[in-house]
């Protein structure tokens, strides 16, 4: 098993973040599959809008599709041997929270049936995040009768960067406004998990290209400011440069002479892309102080991207092959 991956599966909760389209969902599913194969009881989660959802562009979740479903279940259910899935729904979080605060039930019921309160909970600053946060906390707390956690490893496919920071930064901002009471208690309990590097880590997925690498470096800084421990950076789409140094030198000359004559060649752009990829993955390795995991680009015609990536996580050899020489 990849050494860095061993560190990852020791955690209770892992947040997978990064900019759009870099492969967060694929990596989330691959980690879940690999961790389950390593014997963990895994819960995969993503943030859903839930029942009062105004339908968006996707009437399915790309993450759920990787498990052969249209959506992750609203209530935790097994979606693959050893892997459970659940949406994190703000509204459900609010219900759970109100029920835990007003044990008597009558007030909780009244509150839940009050249209005005419902609206306030949906609209008021940050209460949406509080709901999501409370769902997560509930899953973290769940225990078997023998006291061991039901969800040994929770992996969250986070929305793109800004939303991640909104969630990880939530306790700090809210606690500056609400210092006492049940919400404050829940936030502090959540913090005791999320800010503990032995239990929680964020992993940033990125690509070996200039902009994603720069944004990753910025995001690491942002996460640090919200006290969220960072477990590592996952460099996805690591492609193998087909050319040797000798070949590169020769081809460079050919391209230069054709450019000079005004007859540029096809293939030059990709040729330079490999160079950029190497330069950027070196820059990333140099500038970050957290572990770097490399995941290779799937070969064309690869049947299951998720199990291909899971294999890479479980066998360090496959990953090294994708690393730059």
């Amino acid at each position: 098993m990849l050494e860095q991956f061993e560190g990852l599966i020791k955690k209770r909760i892992v947040l997978i973040t990064g900019k759009g389209g870099v492969g967060r969902s694929s990596v989330t599913a691959a980690i879940a599959m690999a961790a389950a194969r390593a014997g963990k009881r895994v819960l995969v989660a993503e943030i859903g809008d839930g029942r009062d959802n105004e339908q968006r562009i996707h009437d399915y979740s790309p993450l759920a599709r990787l498990f052969g479903l249209d959506h992750l279940p609203e209530n935790k259910a097994e979606i693959m041997p050893g892997v459970w899935g659940s949406m994190l729904l703000p509204l459900k979080g609010h219900e759970l929270f109100l029920a835990s605060v007003f044990r008597v039930g009558a007030l909780a019921k009244a509150a839940l049936h009050s249209e005005a309160l419902r609206r306030l909970f949906q609209a008021a600053p940050s209460l949406r995040e509080v709901g999501i946060f409370y769902c997560l906390l509930t899953y973290l707390r769940q225990k078997h009768t023998d006291g061991t956690p039901s969800n040994e490893l929770i992996i969250v496919d986070m929305p793109a960067t800004g939303h991640t920071l909104a969630l990880t930064g939530l306790p700090k901002i809210l606690l500056s406004m609400v210092s006492r009471g049940p919400i404050a208690d829940a936030l502090r309990e959540g913090q005791s998990y999320l800010n503990d590097p032995d239990q929680a880590s964020a992993y940033v997925v990125t690509l070996p290209e200039t902009l994603p690498v720069s944004e990753t470096i910025e995001l690491l800084e942002g996460l640090k400011n919200t006290n969220m421990p960072v477990g590592g950076v996952i460099l996805n789409h690591v492609a193998q440069d087909p050319f040797t140094t000798e070949e590169r030198l020769r081809l460079e000359k050919v391209f230069a002479s054709h450019r000079a004559q005004g007859t540029p060649l096809l293939g030059e752009e990709s040729f330079h892309y490999f160079e950029e990829a190497r330069r950027e993955s070196e820059r990333l390795a140099r500038e970050i102080s957290v572990p770097l995991l490399r995941l290779p680009d799937a070969p064309p015609g690869c049947e299951s991207l998720v199990s291909f990536l899971a294999d890479s996580l479980l066998s360090s050899a496959a990953v090294r092959a994708g690393a730059p020489q």
Partner: peptide
Amino acid sequence: LVSRVLGGVLGEQF
């Protein structure tokens, strides 16, 4: 109702 719920949940100050 609102003030009881909010007071209970959020704390009086918030």
